[in-house]
Design a protein around this nucleic acid. Structure first.
Lengths: 234, 234
DNA sequence: CTTACTTAGTGTATGATATACACTAAGTAA
DNA sequence: TTACTTAGTGTATATCATACACTAAGTAAG
């Protein structure tokens, strides 16, 4: 039964397979998500996660990266598989299974791009999302929870900041994502104890007060840190 | 481009979509996985994860549960989505994307079943796996790492034990999965501090030494524990 | 019935880590 | 020169993790 089924299943009807991306960016104390406005039915005019069909000759990761670039101009960013959503009725047009990804982008690199290249793309605060097409609100919820969990045990927060950042910026990022305040001295103590950020001989520019020192995430130090059996934890 | 593509993509060729299950069980100090012997090409005679095609009218979770029951007789068990594997060349017959799940079963309930109902199914020690079909070894590796990680922060270990168990059995389970020894007193201290297991008025039977007290995982206490803001941690 | 054997069951002291908390330093702007 | 804003720093205390060893209870064999 099971084996014969397997043999002939290639002629069975197949669900359509898509990828969708929850793209996060951090902008001055706010966490944002990139959405595109739908140009057709169903959900014409509604906002949706960028995404599209998986081609026969590309991996899932490749498909997600391609769709993201085609629809929003965003490329070469942190992109990780989130979960696969396959409820039978999630798309009114028929059976569509979607492999969802989440991406973290440095907004400085894409602020212009998203608004020029794709006039139907826009950044929304995660606390002020419009009504979303399909089950995209649910996908977003899963992505946001994953981000909150993962930022505490993997150094992915750096993906949302410029290469050079101040410790206060990093702390604000954590406070924004985790939605709670963090003690300044304890935060810095824990971060510096890991020895995975490099202190630069530079300070921030154009601020109307004492300028803060800039730091850079040091990926090779992080790998060494992991090898020694420690784990990232903030 | 992107939108028009979406509109017409339903006529594009579609990857086949399957589910595969990594089924774990714990048997007297050994962690085991349930495999089935393939009855056709490719990989005829090789061992593989149980799985099969997703039907058009069933959710992914449903498909995984159905395939598991059809191929191995295992049903109503802990079953959770693991990851979706979609490398272009992972199946020599063509493009097949698989949504992998992992399951945790109480072996006592299925020991007979798997060997009678499906003569091509067998339990293997995770440390002595045969060569697996397709990319199933890789899928297994991902599943095992997930299990190791998740057992420390979610109370899923209980899914692998009988409803009534001794604290030593639970400790051995953790030692087996995490592949390291754990201090007896500290383990019990941490576990009991969470107040999520119920001490029963029963002891184990038919042992040639002092009988250990039996306990039961108390799911409602666990939920209360979570609501109070604590987190499972062993 | 006594002894040997096996596993159950328990507490404490020490070190490590997390937390709570407040002032001085440096720069800009008026 | 003064007011304002943010940067940058240390310590004391509480909490938690770890290391560690003996007595209790039952079975089995002589």
């Amino acid at each position: 039964m099971k084996n014969s089924e397997k043999q002939y299943s290639y002629e069975y009807p197949r669900p359509a397979l898509t990828v969708d991306c929850v793209v996060f960016a951090y902008d001055e104390g706010e966490l944002r998500v990139l959405l595109i406005k739908r140009g057709e039915e169903p959900f014409l005019g509604a906002w949706a996660l960028p995404g599209g069909f998986v081609h026969m000759d590309e991996d899932l990761d490749t498909a997600a990266a391609r769709e993201l670039e085609e629809e929003t101009g965003v490329k070469k960013v942190f992109l990780e598989q989130l979960y696969t959503f396959g409820a039978v009725d999630r798309d009114p047009r028929g059976r569509v299974v979607t492999v969802a990804y989440y991406a973290l982008v440095k907004l400085t690199n894409y602020k212009l791009h998203a608004s020029t290249d794709a006039s139907d793309a826009a950044w929304f605060s995660v606390h002020d999302l419009p009504s979303l097409a399909f089950d995209h609100q649910y996908i977003f919820d899963v992505a946001f929870k994953r981000l909150q969990a993962k930022i505490t045990y993997e150094p992915i927060g750096f993906e949302l900041l410029p290469n050079k950042f101040t410790l206060t910026q990093l702390q604000r990022l954590y406070e924004t994502i985790l939605e709670r305040e963090i003690d300044k001295r304890n935060f810095r103590k824990r971060l510096l104890a890991m020895d995975i950020v490099e202190e630069l001989d530079e300070v921030e520019q154009d601020v109307a007060h004492r300028a803060a020192r800039l730091y850079r995430f040091d990926r090779s130090s992080y790998k060494r840190y992991l090898k020694e059996g420690f784990e990232f934890n903030l």
